[in-house]
Amino acid sequence: MVDMVMAPPEMQVVYDYPDSLTDTPTSYCPGCTHGIAHRLVAEVLDELGLREQTVLVSPVGCSVFIYQYFNLDACVAPHGRAPAMATGIKRMLPNHIVFTYQGDGDLVSIGAAEILHAAARGEKITTIFINNAIYGMTGGQMAPTSLPGQKTTSSPTGRDIVSTGNPIRMSEVIAQLDGAAYIVRRSLHDVASIRKAKKAILTAFKVQMAGLGFSMVELLSSCPTNWGIAPETALEWIEQNMLPYYPVGDFKVRDDVKAL
């Protein structure tokens, strides 16, 4: 990826571009943490040596073009239906790793039934769930995960919980289901959290490799453009506003997962 002429030969590379990502520049806005999540997944697949055996199911949302960014086999599901498509692929190709990458507008609203039933059936797939509390691609409308009082284009005076209800904590909901083996929430708001998120993604893929059941990692992400703030302020906004409502933690780690 870098100009190799400039690379200092006397030094060792400590951080380089993952093989599981293509050279295509992403369509995300500056500072969007989608890119960080992509890189973490790519690094985990590189470390596990699974690039040739992995099938990615792309969602609808900002990350709909994810198949261009990952150097993997992929297909695009209709809005919210990625877990259903992943179920079919995994059942036909049980020796492959199948994962879905979904945003909150995709997974929590229109795709809520699919993700709940995939988890309830204990499908041996992995879901990377990006929660940025807003619909990004369509212009910043209120999502089921938008915080109480959060201003969006469809809630210009702030989310009114009397008429729209409270945000859904999806990880906690899915953790209730017996088929779910590993359900955790992590954040991408600082370097330490990003490193922890990578460990969680690694575990989630190991759960699928061992065939233990459904695994999901929820990642609290930023949307600087639609939140209307600068990228670094957006990371602070995650810490100050999202973390109190969506606490980071392990909501379900089954005993057989702990033994991994």
Binding site: A7, V14, Y15, I36, V191, I194
Partner: peptide
Amino acid sequence: TGCAVCAVICPDVCITVYREA
């Protein structure tokens, strides 16, 4: 110091980090 913190947070994977052995 080649700590790679910048590379960890870069959303566009623009940074390659080198460190003296």
